[in-house]
Simulated scan of single mutants.
Amino acid sequence: MHKAVFLDRDGVINEDHAYVHQPQDFHFIAGVFSACQQLQALGYKLVVVTNQSGIGRGYYDEAQFQQLTEWMKAQFAAHQIEIAGVYFCPHHPKNAQVQYRQDCDCRKPFPGMLLQAAKELELDLANSVMVGDKASDMEAALAAGVPQRFLVRSGQALSNDCAATATAVVESLADVPARLVV
């Protein structure tokens, strides 16, 4: 069993410009590569878990998402960082095209993506970490049994409810390696 750091994408890895789906609109947040190198050196597998309702809403399709994902993974690989897996949820319970309009267990705050990754990648959730920028990220990690949950500010104002499920609030992913309990 491996320990992992689960990373939300928009707002943690890249600036959240809403429905980012093309490389020219994907801007890495400062310190992401260095932080991921440190996390990897500490023995964590890096796993992206991201809600992508833009697919369900018809703003872009799964093929475009996969192309961007491959490009993103190549940027990490150029920094000697391996992304062990990328899990996404294209669904939305109300605001989606018919084939994507559903309540599912993969859309955060539900833990489905984390549980699927744990099963497929042989991850030890009890020794893993979540880094996200929304309450739904923290709630999904809590429901999956992930004990360390870092809420990054990403330039957003955070409500007390949002911070309540986090074990720590940090400015960005760059702050996480130094704050880990290993």
Rank of each mutant, 00 (worst) to 15 (best):
Q66W: 08
K119N: 11
A78H: 07
A164T: 10
I55H: 03
L125Q: 10
A74W: 10
Q156E: 10
G58W: 05
Q66M: 13
A96M: 05
N160P: 05
Q148L: 09
A174I: 12
L180K: 14
N51S: 10
V20A: 05
G145E: 05
T50W: 00
R179D: 02
C106H: 08
C104I: 10
A166M: 08
R57W: 03
R179E: 08
F88Q: 05
A4G: 05
L114F: 07
D137E: 05
R57F: 03
T165Q: 09
K94F: 06
H2G: 08
F110P: 02
A141K: 05
A168N: 04
E139R: 14
D175T: 15
E139S: 11
A84R: 03
A178Q: 15
F110R: 13
M138I: 13
N51Y: 01
N51H: 11
A35T: 14
C162R: 13
M72D: 00
A164R: 14
C104G: 03
S128G: 09
A35N: 06
V20F: 01
V182W: 15
T50H: 02
N127I: 08
V181F: 04
G58F: 07
Y19N: 11
A135S: 14
D10E: 01
S154W: 04
L158M: 03
A164H: 10
L115K: 14
Q116C: 00
Q22A: 12
A118Q: 12
A78K: 14
K94H: 12
A35W: 11
Q66C: 12
V5Q: 05
H91V: 04
M113R: 03
A118E: 11
V152G: 00
Q52F: 02
A178G: 15
G43Y: 02
A157H: 13
F65E: 00
L42K: 15
V48R: 08
A96Y: 09
I29D: 02
V20R: 04
F6W: 09
V152K: 12
A63W: 04
T165C: 06
V5Y: 05
V49A: 06
